[in-house]
Design a protein around this nucleic acid. Structure first.
Lengths: 154, 154
DNA sequence: TATTGTTATACTCTATAACTATA
DNA sequence: TATAGTTATAGAGTATAACAATA
């Protein structure tokens, strides 16, 4: 008791939930990366990496997948087009849609950023063995395979 | 080629990196939680959960662990004290420091929020078996055990 | 002189709403 | 009438800098 206010004792004192751990780990990566080292912002990296893995995806689907609202994605893709890293083209089958792709120049920038990201991941995941890291990557991929991040709808 | 700009073809098209996956998963959780369902904000949850697991931790250490800058932590803890969920007291051995704790009231609110968080985690991690989830939680805890998130220093 | 915490402020990121065009 | 994308704006979140108290 401090000043008459009861303090929590005992009960659940360990076992941090997945949400807390994911938050910590993600923040750890974000705080250790810098635009200078990556050659791009982390949000550029995430968008380009997803676009490379899903060539010709629609702008809308991209936003759903990486959790960026449609309006913010417009701005992000504008910037990626200005740097020459990505391209939008109209979907001939549905002229409302934009199909997005990484350019060769974007792929080169992405590859460079991946080198820098790997160093950060090595640091943040230093406590894990190579086998542990492979398992972690596999489980994360499996979890994301089914469920979209879910961008807000208008 | 589109308008003379070369598109990236082939090369790395799968295997999303850990950073991208962690970003997606964490965003997925954040987007699915609401203050109404949790009874608190997610940042309150993260702070309280860490404080409960590390009773009597200093304010500075808490900020390091959960990746909240010292100035923002002041505001967050002010709010947690106003709601009666946390307490600060001076460290008698070093009167510059504040030691923080979850109150019994805070522990009750935290337990309620954990119920809501668990439902969200169930949804986001639906593709994983119970065994997979346990492994994921173990690996995340192992990774975080060593490396602090690293709040910015003044 | 360095550290902990605080305050004030500026900046970035994200979300909300209204609009255009296509279906 | 609904969907994809855009624009403008407001709000939340986060970082930077200067300061007070204590070591």
């Amino acid at each position: 008791m401090i000043a008459g206010v009861p303090i929590n004792r005992g009960g659940n004192t360990g076992e941090a939930g997945v949400t807390v751990l994911l938050t910590q780990l993600t923040k750890g990566i974000y705080r250790r990366t810098s635009e200078a080292e990556l050659g791009m912002r982390l949000k550029d990296f995430v968008a380009l990496a997803y676009m490379r893995a899903h060539s010709g995806i629609s702008q809308h689907e991209l936003g759903e997948a990486i959790g960026v609202d449609a309006n913010n994605l417009v701005i992000l893709l504008n910037e990626l087009e200005e740097t020459g890293w990505a391209l939008r083209r109209r979907d001939p089958d549905d002229r409302r849609r934009h199909l997005v792709d990484v350019t060769s120049k974007g792929a080169a920038a992405l590859a460079k950023a991946e080198g820098a990201i790997t160093l950060v991941e090595d640091e943040v995941l230093a406590a894990l063995s190579a086998s542990d890291r492979a398992t972690l990557a596999r489980l994360l991929a499996k979890a994301m395979d089914r469920v979209p991040v879910g961008a807000a709808q208008n």
